[in-house]
Nucleic acid binder design. Sequence first.
DNA 1: TAGTGGTCTAGACCACTCC
DNA 2: GAGTGGTCTAGACCACTAG
Lengths: 258, 258
Amino acid sequence: MSAPAQPGSPPAGLRKGATRHDHIVEDIRSFIVDGRWPPGFQLPVETDLAERYGVSRMTMNKALGQLAREGFLVRRKKSGTQVAQPRAESAVVAIADIRDEVRRSGRAHRFHLLARRARPGREEDALLLGDAPGSREVLWLQGLHLADDHPFCFETRLINPDAAEGAKEQDFADLAPGAWLLGAVPWSVASHRVRAVNATAAEAKLLELEVGEACLEIVRRTQAAGDWVTGVRLLYPGSEHQLVANFGPDAGGGPSRG
Amino acid sequence: MSAPAQPGSPPAGLRKGATRHDHIVEDIRSFIVDGRWPPGFQLPVETDLAERYGVSRMTMNKALGQLAREGFLVRRKKSGTQVAQPRAESAVVAIADIRDEVRRSGRAHRFHLLARRARPGREEDALLLGDAPGSREVLWLQGLHLADDHPFCFETRLINPDAAEGAKEQDFADLAPGAWLLGAVPWSVASHRVRAVNATAAEAKLLELEVGEACLEIVRRTQAAGDWVTGVRLLYPGSEHQLVANFGPDAGGGPSRG
DNA sequence: TAGTGGTCTAGACCACTCC
DNA sequence: GAGTGGTCTAGACCACTAG
């Protein structure tokens, strides 16, 4: 551990569009990522750093707080601020929206409804919803997402008509239920589960795969105002689809508070 | 859209441990998630809200800024703050650390080295690394992660000896290279890719699966100080493994700045 | 008990953007 | 031009905790 370089020398030309605390965050992060400030390195106290950077303590606090939230720093009262130990190899990946994903790849998205049924809830619905929906009526759908008219994703969905006003009147012939629900249900929270499964014969035929080919299965359960809204299973050909993430250390963050 | 309830009435008993802006965030978020403030709803201006909540404008700004980062609010100068339109069905999923994951399920984690080789880089290494490593020497490893002595994850890894000091001297006989690298390389950033693949004959044998069974494949590429450090392919039995997330609307956030 | 971060305030200036 | 959010400041008090 050689003597680390000193921060704070005002970089003469501030980059455009960056706030002061943004600049400080990037400056200190570069010290850490470059290894000049190794894990465990003790930073000067907030007031000192604020003086060196020529900002108020609150601005400095904002910058250090952000770096702590990102996982680069550990801050404790009395003992001060240290560079964090690199953590477990964890990360987060993003699950994109189907339409966006198709369109971003330069292809045209289309939804094709395969089946639509209004029926009483069953016990097996718990596979999609987590809990059994009871005996009240549910809306059950199956459909295929197409990219340039090629199979992209096979969708199986349950909708709670009580939570999604107008669902019973929607035929979803060409409108993806996910897109419709977006406008019909104000705000919701969802949980996700990602697995790998082998395509069944029926699924393989729909997705134009060989039977047994590996597929990525995403199950999303959506709730709003305390009631379930929808549960959906999305099946992607494993060869075609992948989840991607480009992230630093943090594997948390996000609005997990709700 | 009925007249929304009014915020700001101080909730008599402040919850313990919550800061003022935390309380405001949760209060407003509940208005949005409950549907009392529908998408597009125009919020009072910052100064008004600050007065109603009995806080300074900066505290109010902190709360509203957080809600905007989380995706619940959209803020524009002059036109003010509105409840955001629910966005595309996107989300984030967490990739956990292997040891943590095994231990959290109450089982014992063990790593068993299957192969270890120091050799010049090849073109095919680009599959793991993204770029070809050139002709410099790389360290190539294969091993099995066990949970209570049952196969849990099959790992194939390349290590850059120049970036990970001491790697050549490590035999990794029982030490998972990921864990070792954590302590050997100060800080790094990684990119991830998740796919579904069919197990090959060799993989199936190692993981005690049938040939062709669907597996979750995670490829992680790690860099530090501008050079690649390691590239790893983790193969999980699809039946056993799943990625899980419980998240709200936000699919971004995180330290994507780096 | 003293040092540190965590938070809050009142006021200020600026930048953007809609009218 | 005026209204709004974005940011910053100087100072203050508090909570936690290591010594």
